[in-house]
Design a protein around this nucleic acid. Structure first.
Lengths: 228, 228
DNA sequence: CCGTGTGAAATTATTCACAGCC
DNA sequence: GGCTGTGAATAATTTCACACGG
């Protein structure tokens, strides 16, 4: 199988495999089995094989996968053989941290400009990138051929900013703002919500506490010789 | 239905509903239908009703859900009626941005301490929280009864730091480090990976470009009177 | 032999559609 | 009449298990 429409869940894992592969390649590893890759990526091996089968038959039976070759195939599939221009919108705390985060540039995502609504921030340089006023969005997106925007604005500004970005030609948005935003059909949207992740953890944390209590209760009953 | 084991996918959406509800409550809204809540949270209404049904029957047929009451129920379910102490590990760019991010404290997640391996950072105060040396982890986690750790260290340090945190008693980790980490059974782990999200977007962005090309090709063939 | 690639089975998640109640 | 709550239907995802090829 070599032709298309990779399941979304599978696409979302490919970058993980890619990172594991690059990591092992740098350590000099030339070949990996699905089991080794699974361990490095934190998933199980059946999933690895199934996911990779959507890309094609790039493994060798009885042997495994050639690391460099697989890196090339996944990179191509993910569209990482080209560089992408992005704009980062929002030069506050989070925006600045994102600008300083090296992981974007490493993977071919160039921040062409940082945009902010606050005139006081305009002209600053963050991680070597100039901050422009949001009014310049249309021009910069056009001139720099920006397809992807990273949104790090306050929640209540997010929808409005997203609308303008889409209007200006952006077709993918990575939203860090703590707000639900709507985008038109045909525009991709992913969100990263810092506090939501913590809240999910709190749920499981609480369950752990509750079941500990129950277990303690059970132990106590047992020690007391009472029926369960 | 009121008794337990809410599907994971559903748990992951509850914080989203909660935020939408709080937002509307602040705007003075007292009641919402599943359709209204769906619009505010960016999902469909069947999902809302199904998800909420796992918590219990808290709506009123023909009317909708009482906003305040539902906020209370979801908060209780998620374990947000209590405050949680956390430690933030890593006082670099990202760590500082996270410390400055108000969204944690707002939702009852108190950062008890920031930990860093770099002695030069020890003693600093970030967002009103003191930075301690990582050697203090065990003491702080014990004294402050910390169950949740936020990991914002370099990728190559992540596993080692996670091991120490678990050893010290942490039972939930939110990992921002760009690395796969393993935790023992019984410890919760969620990860937020900034560059992986961009890579996922790149995949769909590329497909858009490719299909545009194909469409242009089709148009060209059509205009040229050639067969498809 | 060993590990991939993949149908088939099992599980999980989403959506439908409507009875039931306010 | 309108909206919830929920079984039943559908879709997506994960896992199993093994034939196949190097």
């Amino acid at each position: 199988m070599s032709q298309r429409q990779i399941p979304e869940a599978s696409v979302a894992r490919l970058p993980l495999y890619l990172r594991a592969l690059i990591d092992r390649a740098e350590a000099g590893v030339e070949s990996m089995s699905s089991g080794e890759l699974a361990a490095a990526a934190g998933v199980n091996s059946a999933k690895i094989r199934k996911d990779l089968s959507y890309l094609g038959s790039y493994g060798t039976r009885g042997v495994g996968y050639d690391v460099e070759y697989l890196i090339a195939q996944i990179s191509r599939e993910l569209g990482l053989t080209q560089d992408w221009s992005t704009v980062l919108v929002g030069a506050g705390n989070l925006g600045q941290a994102l600008a300083n985060y090296g992981g974007f540039a490493d993977r071919g995502f160039r921040i062409a400009a940082i945009l902010d609504a606050d005139p006081a921030k305009v002209g600053m340089t963050v991680a070597g990138v100039e901050v422009f006023h949001q009014d310049q969005a249309e021009r910069i997106i056009r001139e720099e051929d920006v397809a992807i925007a990273i949104l790090a604005v306050p929640g209540d500004a997010a929808q409005e900013v997203a609308d303008r970005l889409v209007e200006a030609g952006v077709t993918s948005i990575l939203n860090f703002a703590p707000a639900v935003i709507q985008v038109p059909e045909g525009v991709s949207l992913r969100k990263v919500d810092l506090s939501i992740e913590l809240q999910i953890l709190a749920y499981y944390e609480q369950r752990r506490l509750v079941s500990d209590d129950l277990a303690n209760g059970a132990v106590r009953r047992h020690l007391d010789g009472l029926p369960d």
